[in-house]
């Protein structure tokens, strides 16, 4: 967490993560160039370079897309999610290198502006098999560039978490464009069905993990209120672990009901940082701690402790026996609400 602009707040976790990414990129590149020198000595340097960075970006995008669902299926993978932005920016650099070199190689030194040439050289937009696949890659690169340039918390703060999150959900559109770019482009020059199989396998893995994590979260998404509800029954106190939360959906939003020190408090589940699930977090040092990046909020008023300024909506709760009831109407962000005290707490 930070209260003012800072390029990157380094810590040991980030350094270990980034060194791992760097080792991977360098090793793959050395292996790829070395492998071509031995197995394909006739390949030109530009071709190897374009393919190396294209493949790296494609493979890294797959890794990035599996991290989200993996963390929902097993929170131990949160350590991978913590620095995912650095992996994303690295992937963009790989994709940009691939894109820039491709445009220079295939479109520069010609009678047309290289960028115009990307769109106007092959005009068979009405054909599936002959579709100008480079255009698909170009638009995917624009999305990745937007994501990489707005990845810093500075943009998160300025755009607001919901706009920022929506912008970054475009990664799925970029993935679809890249799959088409690969299938209608690079794979058209290859004769081995293995490569088609690998692309399909990657898609199946990503889709399956998303479906599985979605199924896991589905029960929490069933609304427990209706439009006229005042207090509605949310859960039993025994369903909530100490210092943890139960997520329920009211007023179309996920709400996290925390149990701590014999008390109960409810806040909006959406972290104001990157939209992380606060209900999967934990009370640490008296604060709700987001599992994604450790942003903290006081459970009784939904405010980050000073000097931090983030706030989330709060909700009224009441207890009837050991039944927890919630008022579905959200209170303005940061509104103090007296925690409900449990008799046996």
């Amino acid at each position: 967490m930070s209260v003012s602009y800072a390029a990157i707040l380094w810590n040991k976790q980030k350094k270990v993560y980034d060194i791992g990414v760097l080792i991977f990129v360098l090793s793959f590149t050395v292996l790829f160039f070395g492998g071509h020198a031995v197995l394909h000595p006739n390949a030109t340097f530009e071709t190897i370079l374009i393919r190396n960075f294209g493949l790296l970006a494609f493979l890294m995008l797959h890794l990035i897309l599996v991290i989200g669902p993996l963390t929902r299926l097993n929170p131990k993978f949160l350590i991978i999610l913590y620095n995912r932005r650095h992996l994303g920016v690295t992937m963009f650099i790989m994709a940009a290198t691939h894109g820039v070199f491709s445009i220079l190689n295939f479109h520069s030194l010609s009678n047309t502006n290289p960028l115009k040439s990307v769109f106007l050289s092959n005009l068979q937009y009405d054909s599936l098999i002959n579709f100008p696949f480079q255009v698909l890659g170009f638009f995917a690169l624009i999305i990745l560039a937007l994501m990489a340039t707005t990845s810093h918390d500075f943009w998160l703060k300025n755009l607001g978490p919901k706009v920022w999150k929506s912008l970054h959900m475009l990664v799925y559109l970029a993935y679809a464009l890249i799959i088409l770019h690969v299938v209608l482009g690079a794979l058209q020059n290859e004769t081995s069905p293995i490569l088609f199989g690998v692309v399909f396998f990657g898609f199946v893995i990503i889709a399956s993990l998303h479906v599985l994590s979605g199924l896991k979260e589905q029960p929490a998404d069933v609304a427990i209120d209706d439009a006229k509800s005042e207090f509605v029954r949310a859960c039993n106190t025994s369903e909530i672990k100490e210092n943890r939360a139960k997520i329920v959906t009211v007023s179309g939003e996920r709400v996290a009901i925390f149990k701590y020190n014999g008390k109960l408090s409810a806040v909006n589940n959406f972290c104001r940082h990157q939209g992380g699930p606060l209900g999967e977090g934990k009370i640490i040092d008296g604060c709700i701690t987001c599992p994604w990046h450790g942003y903290q909020y006081r459970p009784e008023d939904g405010q980050s402790p000073p000097p931090f300024t983030e706030k989330v909506e709060t909700f009224h709760l009441k207890l009837e026996g050991d039944q927890v009831w919630i008022d579905p109407k959200p209170l303005p962000e940061g509104t103090p609400v007296q925690p409900v005290t449990m008799n046996n707490g």
Partner: peptide, 14 residues
């Protein structure tokens, strides 16, 4: 005391 593991990225250790 709750000893359940919970990872926080900004902490030095994991």
């Amino acid at each position: 005391m709750d000893n359940e593991e919970f990872y926080i990225g900004w902490q030095e250790g994991a």
